[in-house]
Design a protein around this nucleic acid. Structure first.
Lengths: 333, 333
DNA sequence: CTGTTAGCGCTTTCAG
DNA sequence: CTGAAAGCGCTAACAG
């Protein structure tokens, strides 16, 4: 029987069971594990669901079953465009399996990492997908002890907390450095947001050059404005600057704009390389050379690793290197 | 007594209470409502928390208390840069009060709105913050009946589901149209992603002109590439094009780049106006005129409305118009 | 295939 | 200020 239009408390499974004339647990199974229930009963229960307007309470189900069907997704900050394709695909892939993402932001603050992680753990997530590597060893250890599947992303490590989907930041830096040297550029500069992964790329780049490289550091998150500032700073310090390696495409775009504003031709007067292959990189004028990272793949793979663990499947490859690729475009051609 | 380093099941409040030599409920109060517990007891309980490594189970707490301390945040897609500052600030503001955001993506798909909302409701959120207005009247009504505080955002309506933080899309369109006309531009075009809100702005713009305006529609989410395509399309249809009104700064940036690639000077040959005041708008070259929307304010206000409701406070102003402002920069100066 | 029983971990009564 | 009892809504385990 349909319930009155308002006021009354939301229907519980108990109400559904009564309306369907079956026991509580049969109603539960009809909805959650229909394979073991007769077709007729399922139909009756589903009618009762319609009639009562029942919406399950996953908090209660999760408490008993110990599966919350939530996955914590932790990023430095949502506004860092870099990670969005990953988080979007992570969310979509999980949603298709009935899992939701609980969002956490560390603000690039190591002290907050622990707080955010503990907050997330208190919600009993079935998995944790972390952007970057968890820095504090004590936190890593405690995280491991929870037994919650953890996927660190966007970096590489021999000893992740649990699982990992990423690539070698150092290799990226070396590859770009090698590429720059092959181009014959001697007077080069780095524009970087200075987050842990960007610093690893800087180190790799310098390793390729075999020496320290003039660097303009800007605050994270990087954006176009800071890219403009970075180029201004680099030009002031290194007048004959030939090429700039940037820690993000946003920063690179700022370098491009500043070069344009100063009447520098790209790439003739100044070459520029970004990082990330943001959606706009290919379509700038000149188009932006960059390092392609498959962000959606990171999100999808992280989701799949978590889901596999949730299903109790063995994970053959707990460490996935998604690699990277230098995409040469107009800004360095 | 500290528990062995691994394997053992996570400590519950029961373990804490035993370690502290108090009853379960006293331990609960010491952590959740310390005002009614003696200082000595609180200290004992906190020591026990340390010793046991206790992390509360908010699923269990939420089940009994009917306060999950989660808020559903629903966006068309995370990768729509437009909404990120709102979601970021929403998440931060809520986190400061111990609330987490559960992420939902509708993919600009009306059919998914209902599915996503029901999924969220099943997690018993203490509030729902929805980007845009919920479209389906039946869904609106059912949402209202749940009694969950709902904040619709980024639009205006006399009859929101519950609460609202936004601005009038129509007014934005009219204001930009009026501005364009005052500049004397007759041969104008619109580049739009065609989402519901962008269409309202288009209608407002055309109302200001008193006639239909040539429009290039691109798929959402809008980005630089589609902005370039849009300008190409508009130029093909309207050779003497003087000015373009874009539904996002990303699109406007594409128009800027395409103009540059074609040797059109901005604003002399072609004026361009964006929407949103993205972080890069002020720093492009030429700088991009746009409509400033205070995204962080929308997120913060939405969070505050939800929090007020959670505390049982009366909300004096359930409809907040955050307004907008045309920012004139180089691209229309 | 269906039902009964028990209880997830916590917080709300209601009593001291 | 502290405690005992009850139970949030659901599902695992075991029985029929």
């Amino acid at each position: 029987m349909p319930r009155p239009p308002s006021a009354s408390k939301p229907a519980t499974l108990h109400d559904v069971a009564r309306a369907a004339g079956v026991s509580l647990i049969t109603a539960s199974r009809a909805l959650g594990n229909p394979a073991v229930v007769s077709a007729k009963t399922i139909a009756r229960v589903q009618d009762a669901v319609q009639a009562t307007g029942y919406i399950p309470n996953l908090l209660a189900g999760g408490l008993k079953s110990k599966r919350s069907r939530m996955v914590a997704g932790i990023v430095p900050a949502l506004a860092v465009a870099q990670f969005l394709p990953s988080v979007q695909t992570l969310t979509e892939t999980l949603a298709a399996e009935g899992y939701q993402v609980l969002l956490g932001q560390t603000g690039y603050d190591l002290a907050r990492e622990e707080v955010v992680l503990n907050t997330m753990i208190s919600r009993q997530p079935d998995g944790i997908v972390f952007t970057g590597l968890v820095q504090d060893p004590a936190v890593r250890e405690r995280l491991r002890r929870t037994g919650i599947p953890v996927v660190e992303t966007w970096d590489l490590s021999d000893a992740p907390v649990d699982m990992l989907v990423g690539f070698s930041q150092d290799s990226v830096g070396r590859a770009v450095g090698t590429y720059f040297r092959a181009k014959g550029w001697q007077r080069v500069g780095i524009a970087t947001a200075g987050d842990p992964r960007a610093l690893l790329r800087k180190a790799g780049f310098e390793a390729a050059y075999g020496c320290a490289v003039p660097t303009a550091s800007v605050a994270a998150p990087s954006n176009l404005e800071r890219g403009r500032q970075a180029l201004a700073e680099l030009l002031a310090r290194q007048p004959g600057l030939q090429a700039v390696c940037c820690s993000s495409d946003q920063l690179a775009q700022g370098v491009l704009v500043e070069a344009q504003a100063r009447g520098l031709r790209v790439p003739q007067d100044l070459a520029v390389c970004g990082f990330g292959n943001a959606d706009f990189a290919a379509h700038l004028w000149p188009s932006l050379s960059t390092v392609l990272i498959d962000g959606p793949a990171i999100g999808r793979l992280a989701a799949q690793l978590v889901l596999a663990r949730c299903r109790g499947e063995a994970v053959a490859q707990p460490i996935v290197d998604v690699g990277f690729r230098i995409v040469e475009r107009g800004s360095t051609a």
